[in-house]
Design a protein around this nucleic acid. Structure first.
Lengths: 233, 233
DNA sequence: CGTCATATTGACCGTACCGTCCAGACGCGG
DNA sequence: CCGCGTCTGGACGGTACGGTCAATATGACG
């Protein structure tokens, strides 16, 4: 009794601590979307977050730890958002199309996010390993399902990632302001070995299953875009 | 009295000046291939080049000017190497395939170069504008030649550039040690709208015309790779 | 060999940044 | 009300970097 529960003590601070940490991560998010990751300083971050410098070093060992945290949050939040729907799709090509589609949609709705993703991928390649792994899984299954005309899954992985990252860069820099999402996904599918007909078929299945998934409430934001009217496709 | 020809004086220094400048650019090349462009300092460069710090500022206004010079040299030397052969090709798809093929060949023979290209493209996007323009020209002609099934030239440009840059990164980091060049080019061609048959046809025409161009002596390095044996394709 | 234009040198300074530290605020249990 | 632990603030030292400048080396010319 005399001894106050030390675990209780620790838990008390946890909330405030977590909030401050989240503020630092949010500030870094904001700065990384604006300027080169390497050019962001600790002073920049603490000024943006509205906390003192000492506080920063209570939460992180240095800028590298912060960037890693930002990358992890970025990847995990996106992966979590996708995994549920992704696992419900059996066709590997459809899975890939779905993942790319979600990526592009989010980037179209939020160019700052696209810019952030592009910069983080370049600055901390380690972070994207998880998503690379997801795509690689699907590509391997896809390669097996194909007779033998396609390239290796390793090459296809670099191709898909390369296209997606370049699209993120372009969207983040406000090039391609009116990107045709379906055309982009079709190009990705064709590059890994589908023909035009098959790609179109996947796109068709994607729009129906995606609408279903959206209706589940997994996506709070309204997912419709101006191009969504083409329900006939 | 007899004023010595000032133009002569200027010309005298030109040679030494040019050599020192070239040494600085070469040192930067070497460093940029090894580490992040942003992390290279003036002291690093002058140490690598074996000149004094003051000398650096005689030749360049700062690191940005050096980077720009490196990028310009990189782009111009590659563009010059390609333009002659490129202009002899009428088919835009073949032109694109030829350009990509040359890029990949050089990267396979010199991963340091690939790494340098990838880093420079990220660090000084301005420099690559010329090559982007070349590809864009070909893609526009290509889009016109196609009935209307393909995507916009703008989107195709980002796709092609995205794939090439990712391949440069992968090659520079020694991933994909045994990259199948033909498979990569086929993927690029399919992504912009060719079907598998057409892509194969372009690859066939590419290997013949490329062999011809190689024999001209434009490429001192032996261009054969282990995959080149498939002359039957 | 002396002259002169030019190239080169490296010590030097100001600054921006990193990482630390200690004094004080805050929130809780007693 | 006090005691205790954690979090916070911003001043401080150390340092690495960018950029300058007066002194010196080079080498062609007469």
């Amino acid at each position: 009794m005399a001894n106050i529960n030390p675990a209780r003590r620790a838990e008390i601070g946890r909330e405030k601590r977590a909030r401050t940490r989240a503020e630092l991560v949010a500030a870094a998010n904001s700065l990384f979307a604006k300027q080169a990751v390497e050019s962001v300083t600790v002073d920049d971050v603490v000024r943006e977050a509205g906390v003192a410098k000492g506080t920063f070093y209570v939460h992180f060992d240095g800028l590298d730890a912060l960037t890693a945290a930002v990358a992890e949050e970025l990847v995990l939040s996106f992966d979590e958002m996708l995994q549920a729907d992704r696992l419900s799709l059996a066709d590997p090509a459809l899975r890939i199309a779905f993942g790319c589609s979600s990526f592009i949609d989010k980037a179209l709705n939020d160019p700052r996010w696209a810019s952030l993703v592009a910069r983080m991928a370049a600055a901390s390649p380690k972070g994207g390993e998880l998503l690379r792994g997801r795509i690689f899984e699907d590509l391997q299954k896809f390669s097996q399902s194909l007779p033998g005309s396609g390239a290796s899954a390793e090459l296809n992985l670099e191709i898909v990632v390369g296209i997606m990252l370049q699209l993120m860069r372009a969207l983040g820099e406000r090039r391609l302001p009116s990107l045709d999402r379906d055309a982009a996904i079709s190009a990705i599918l064709r590059s890994i070995g589908l023909n035009a007909r098959e790609a179109k078929s996947v796109l068709g299945r994607l729009s129906t299953s995606a609408d279903g998934a959206m209706a589940d409430g997994a996506r709070p934001r309204k997912p419709q875009r101006q191009g969504a009217a083409r329900s006939g496709a």
